[in-house]
Design a protein around this nucleic acid. Structure first.
Ligand SMILES: [Zn+2]
Ligand SMILES: [Zn+2]
Ligand SMILES: [Zn+2]
Ligand SMILES: [Zn+2]
Lengths: 167, 167
DNA sequence: ACTGATAGTGTTATGTTATAACATGTTATG
DNA sequence: CATAACATGTTATAACATAACACTATCAGT
């Protein structure tokens, strides 16, 4: 089960892939985590996570609220923000600062401070972990400073989109 | 003159330093740039830049507006956002995404995509350039993707603040 | 089962950040 | 001096986020 997840790369996200497996895998992981930690995976929390994991696109809080409303849940702002805060605390959702939007983590086993790769055309977002991205935060050059939290976001165009543009 | 600037480091920002020189140096650079590029360094633009370069702390757009109001300028939101957009285009101001705030670039000669080091205690922000920070964006591991723009923000506590806390 | 504590959800109101659209003034150029 | 461009001013509104409080569900200990 672990091996299956380790193979997930940037290209898998931007290319066509078996997203049903992404989805099922992510749901399974979050269920197991909640069970193990004795947390409630309530219908609302499940729904918010499902909305976010539907595609690899970040959604604004108000987009999530609309989706909740369509599915019969309350859609006043605090509903979304509370659930998002909760899911972020546990590493299942990340905020993309440059977009004021939220994305489901497809693999909470990763480093908890991933870098985000954001395609401005298809709007999909992939995570890459610290080591693979070549980013090292415990860096000697940033002396006189203790880093606690990092935000790394890279915006550009994925090859799937740039190939499509040249056809 | 160039050498003077190259010595600017993270520690210079967080420690006590001759900020008058920072200030004058920055103003001189922006004046020269505007002159060279035939751009208007209007009173409003100058004021906004001065407000931001007063300290190495980022300010929200509405804080800038208040300061503008106190100095007799108009203080409706578009005033600030337009000038900020303009100054950002030319690299004299950066936006700190994690704070929804704006900071004057103390050295526009740097890489145009610096990493930001943010102290959550004194709220000062330093820039470090790509190479020194150990961050390399043209990274082979982020394949299938052409990075156009990067955001790197590191939040923590500077040693000036952590020393102060243990006294 | 009762009781109180904790956690989760719902609702209203408000705060904060950012932009659209249009009017007016100012500056450079032919 | 006409006119195009750039710059600033103003009103309104959009987009993003939180405070405060009410109500409900779940759970632990009696
Ligand atoms: Zn997928
Ligand atoms: Zn794409
Ligand atoms: Zn200084
Ligand atoms: Zn500090």
């Amino acid at each position: 089960m672990k091996k299956k997840r380790e193979g997930k790369t940037t290209s898998k996200i931007f290319d066509d892939h078996d997203h049903g497996m992404c989805f099922d895998d992510a749901i399974e992981q979050i269920e197991n985590y909640f069970l193990k930690k004795n947390l409630q995976f309530t219908p609302l929390r499940r729904k918010v996570f499902e909305i976010l994991i539907r595609d690899h696109k970040p959604l604004g809080a108000y987009e999530i609220l609309e989706a909740l409303g369509r599915d019969g849940f309350s859609s006043s702002p605090p509903i979304a923000y509370r659930v998002l805060d909760f899911l972020m605390e546990h590493g299942f959702v990340h905020k993309i600062q440059g977009l004021n939007a939220f994305i489901a983590c497809p693999n909470p086993n990763h480093s908890h401070s991933p870098a985000f790769v954001i395609c401005r055309k298809c709007e999909k977002v992939a995570e890459v972990d610290e080591k693979k991205s070549g980013i090292s935060f415990a860096n000697p050059s940033i002396d006189n400073f203790e880093v606690e939290k990092t935000t790394v976001e890279m915006t550009g165009v994925c090859t799937t989109c740039s190939r499509a543009a040249t056809i």
